[in-house]
Design a protein around this nucleic acid. Structure first.
Length: 517
RNA sequence: GGCCCGUUCGUCUAGGGGUUAGGACACGUCCCUUUCACGGAUGAAACGCGGGUUCGAUUCCCGCACGGGCUACCA
């Protein structure tokens, strides 16, 4: 075997927005391929026309782009040698292959209608048995095994609706070698005669998946654990086609679980859990319902990716912060954990905080400028939209936010005078004797020529000393008078940024409205 | 129900026959800071249960329990 070039695929079906579990599967495929210098392809598995959702395909492509997980072949990323990459456009291929299987006696036509099967299932259920279309029942059904050849030909040419089923051999041990889980053994008698080809002329996932992986020379199938139960069936299919020697290796990833409660994370979880499950915001074309996305919530793609990478995988050391390049370097399937992972929204925030700190003040200032314009309505040549002001504001705020938009929430008072004050705090701290101090402070501040943080601080202290007031007594009052709040950015840095005029104005206003001297 | 997979602090995980069972997030305390945050230090916090195997099991094996997945002409 194998001097074959590594080729992996991410094969979502466009039934809605891709959720974070899907993104992680794409990521692991991508990391694995890049590490080995292989190819990563995007294939759209749209064989179920009933579940097609408009915009889903575009959503998948945009999500991968935002995350920096770029396929080198496939829909949306330039076609490669195996186009088309949309299964609905490969119909004839599957028909051809399924006919080959029938000719080899590995598959057969079945004419039982969905309604017939439904009735049988219900009957069995009533007897507390589970019906399976398999070696024990197939000879009682309406198919090319029980009908004579002429009749079959007749039915087909008369346009009767039919499906094609795999003729699963009886009592054969099937071994699936999984990179993450080791060997999984299943007896073929437990597998039913799965439908390979539907009556609407489309293949099922099982057929399309195997045919395409073979045709596209996929070497490794890396997918979610929900596929593990059907992996033996896929092995059987490779065997039936005679492709076992080039069968891809399997790696079934642990599932992403809901943070609280049980079950795998699903698209339906939407925002119910208080955090996004989708990379990008999604508006359902039918209901108009909007689900939030990591991007719109202010997460950086690098934080999102880093967080996702560590959900089910861990490097050999204690390192937790990885760039995409570093992930590619360190990633191995062998180090993927076996158990499902609940993810912690708090840790996701921490990752974002980390990446925010890494941004330059300049980049952050540009975003803050936009926020100031959009949210505070500043415009034109307002000095607060100037680089110098913005850069200083960023320096004051950077260490205390996890998201860029928090700079607006935590820094309002840098841009706007307080509309009101933390009254309870003032009542607690204020003593009538402080009136003299603040009058004196007003005086000495207005006499200043420079207004640096250090200068303001020493003037503040000198004034306090001269008035016989302990700085600590009036410090927080000063803060509330200027910002309205009892906590926040570095006080003297804030005063310096605001500038003399603004500070005096705010102080005077506070003295006349917030306290009775 | 049947089949398959899994189980280390609250969460993500490292580890693996003999360890003080390690790290990160979150949480507590302290230091720094005349605020808050950052930073630093520190603390509490885990091998599901029962049998084996073994001088010794959290680690290997078997049961059980629990959790999850699959069980469609869905992927």
């Amino acid at each position: 075997m194998s001097s074959r070039k590594i080729r992996v695929r991410f094969a979502p079906s466009p039934t809605g927005p891709l959720h974070m579990g899907g993104v992680r599967t794409a990521l692991y495929n991508y990391l694995f391929a890049k590490k080995q210098g292989g190819d990563f392809i995007l294939r759209i598995e749209d064989t179920d026309q009933n579940r097609f959702v408009k915009g889903a395909e575009e959503y998948i492509i945009e999500s991968l782009k935002w995350c920096g997980i770029e396929p080198n072949e496939g829909i949306g990323f330039g076609n490669g040698p195996h186009a088309p990459y949309r299964q609905s456009e490969r119909k004839e291929l599957y028909r051809k292959h399924v006919e080959e299987l029938i000719a080899k006696g590995k598959a057969y036509y079945a004419f039982d209608s969905a309604e017939d099967l439904d009735i049988i299932r219900k009957q069995w259920e009533a007897e507390k048995k589970t019906f399976a279309y398999d070696s024990s029942t197939r000879l009682n059904m309406k198919n090319s095994l029980t009908l004579d050849a002429l009749k079959v030909k007749d039915l087909i040419s008369s346009g009767a609706s039919y499906v094609v089923r795999l003729l699963v051999p009886e009592n054969e041990e099937i071994h699936v070698q999984d990179i993450i889980r080791g060997e999984v053994n299943v007896n073929s008698s437990l597998i039913d005669d799965k439908v390979l080809f539907k009556s609407d002329g489309m293949p099922t996932y099982h057929l399309a998946n195997v045919v395409d992986d073979y045709l596209m020379q996929i070497t490794h199938v890396i997918r979610g654990e929900e596929w593990l139960p059907s992996a033996p069936l896929h092995v059987l299919l490779y065997r039936s086609f005679g492709w076992e020697s080039v069968m891809p290796q399997f790696a079934h990833l642990p599932l992403l679980l809901k943070p609280e409660g049980n079950g795998k994370l699903s698209k339906r979880d939407g925002d119910r859990l208080g955090f996004p499950v989708f990379p990008l915001e999604w508006k359902d074309p039918e209901s108009g319902e909007v689900s939030s996305g990591y991007r719109e919530k202010g997460y950086y793609p690098e934080a999102f990716i880093n967080m996702l990478a560590l959900l089910g995988w861990h490097a050999s050391g204690d390192k937790e912060l990885f760039t995409m390049e570093e992930l590619i370097q360190d990633f191995t399937l062998e180090r993927v954990h076996k158990a499902g992972a609940k993810f912690d929204p708090e840790k996701a925030k921490w990752f974002n905080e980390h990446y925010l700190r890494l941004k330059s003040d300049k980049v952050l200032a540009a975003h803050l400028k936009k926020i100031a314009a959009d949210e505070f309505g500043l415009k034109g040549d307002d000095h607060r939209l100037k680089d110098e002001f913005l850069l200083n504001a960023v320096r004051l705020l950077k260490e205390r936010v996890q998201f860029e938009h928090e700079m607006a929430e935590k820094g309002v008072y840098l841009f706007m005078a307080p509309a009101d004050y933390d009254r309870p705090l003032i009542e607690k701290k204020w003593k009538p004797t402080h009136g003299g101090f603040f009058q004196a402070l007003l005086n000495s501040l207005s006499g200043m020529s420079g207004f640096s943080a250090a200068e303001v601080e020493s003037v503040f202290k000198e004034t306090a000393a001269a008035q016989g007031v302990k700085p600590g007594e009036v410090l927080q009052l000063l803060r509330v008078f200027v910002s309205g709040q009892g906590g926040g950015v570095d006080l003297f840095g804030m005063l310096s940024l605001l500038g003399k005029e603004e500070v005096l104005e705010r102080l005077e206003k506070a003295m006349s409205t917030a306290v009775s001297v």
